[in-house]
Simulated scan of single mutants.
Amino acid sequence: MHNFEKAPIFVYVINVDWYFELHWLQRALATLNSGAEVHLVMGMTDTRLMDSFSQYGLVCHQWNIDRKSLNPFFNLKGLVDLYQLLKSISPDVIHAITIKPNIYVGLICHLLKIPYLLSITGTGIIFSGKALSTRLIRPAIRLLYKASKRKDIKRRIIFENNEDRAYFINTGLCDSPEAVTILGAGVNPDIYEPVAERETDTPIILFAARLLWDKGLGDLIEAAKRLRSQGLKFSIQVAGIIDNSTVNAIDQRVLEAWGREGAIQWLGTEKNMPRLLAQANIVVLPTFYGEGVPRILIEAASCERAIVASDIPGCREIVRHGINGLLVPARDIEALAEALAQLIQNPEIRKIMGKQGREIVERDFSEQQVISETLSLYKELLS
């Protein structure tokens, strides 16, 4: 393990607590265990999470950030609040995660002259969305990323996949030497362990993701209609976080209506993902969102489940077509239906793909590897 010489002060700046718990908690705890003092600055939505972070020894600060607001006045207030908070903590390194914290921290570190890291956890709706509001704001976001480049402050920009890294470098949003790829959040293969599929004539297809339209659940429902009209037997389980603080959220009433129609089985938010994966036969993510590396796909591969996913950056990183799953063009319902049909009808192929997925995770996507690579970057910025 990397141990720091003297106790440096680290601050993680992130938009919301549940996202931090899901993707970043293990890295923050490893930083703490290496001898650092660790602060979390974020939008706190759940007091139970705040209590559990504090019990670990992480210092929590509430930051009022509206993740979907484009109101300049409100965003300026968020920036000023963050500046004052960071100045009072006086950290040695700041790690900002997701677009708004990235931009705010990039600008603030100009003034405070503190080494920092930005994590690009996929390009998100801002870079991939088709709505007019996102298209209008995109040039401003790009300009702000460019504005935060400085030669006299050490920084690293961490990408979850190489295609996002190339895009940022090629469009001048960052420089090649400062851009690093660390593949997703990783999972612990001992927790996400292989469980043999239950033999069944009605395979369970699992869709588990943040409930945004861009994650492709609507396309999955359409593909399922076609498959059922061909007489194929299967069921679709849907689990995930309903995230109303973002545009493109699927309304819970829509999910409940699909449940009543028998299109899906709506499970709500599920904490025990290994259990959910153990009872599934196939995992699907027909996303057209700007992904980093979707965690559910790493978890699925670790549990030896065959995957159907969109052929886009991030999904391509973990799913190798024909090896541990099938990649289909995003928004192509016909191709999605065909890929699902192939796996529904072939339990043997699913089994082989599952085994190969597990090997990919053990080699490239273990949590330990991600933690080790992240702590190495921290040491580099401190030196």
Rank of each mutant, 00 (worst) to 15 (best):
M1V: 09
H2C: 07
I9D: 05
S34G: 15
S34D: 11
L49F: 07
S52W: 08
Q55I: 15
V59H: 04
R67M: 15
R67G: 10
R67S: 09
K68Q: 13
L76I: 02
L76G: 07
V80Q: 00
L82M: 11
K87S: 11
S88E: 10
I89L: 06
D92G: 02
I94Y: 10
K100L: 08
P101C: 15
I114K: 13
Y116A: 14
I126Y: 14
S128W: 14
G129R: 11
T134N: 14
L136K: 14
R156D: 02
I157D: 09
F159K: 09
N161R: 10
A179E: 07
A179G: 06
A185D: 09
N188Y: 12
T200I: 03
D201V: 11
I204T: 03
I205K: 00
L212Y: 07
G216C: 02
A224I: 01
L227W: 01
G240W: 00
I241W: 07
S245K: 11
R260P: 05
I264A: 00
Q265S: 08
L267G: 02
T269M: 04
L285I: 01
F288G: 09
F288Q: 12
E291M: 10
I298V: 15
S302A: 15
E304M: 04
S310A: 09
I312P: 11
C315N: 08
C315Y: 08
V319T: 13
R320M: 13
D332W: 03
I333K: 10
A341S: 06
N346S: 04
P347W: 00
I349K: 07
E359I: 15
D364K: 13
L381C: 04
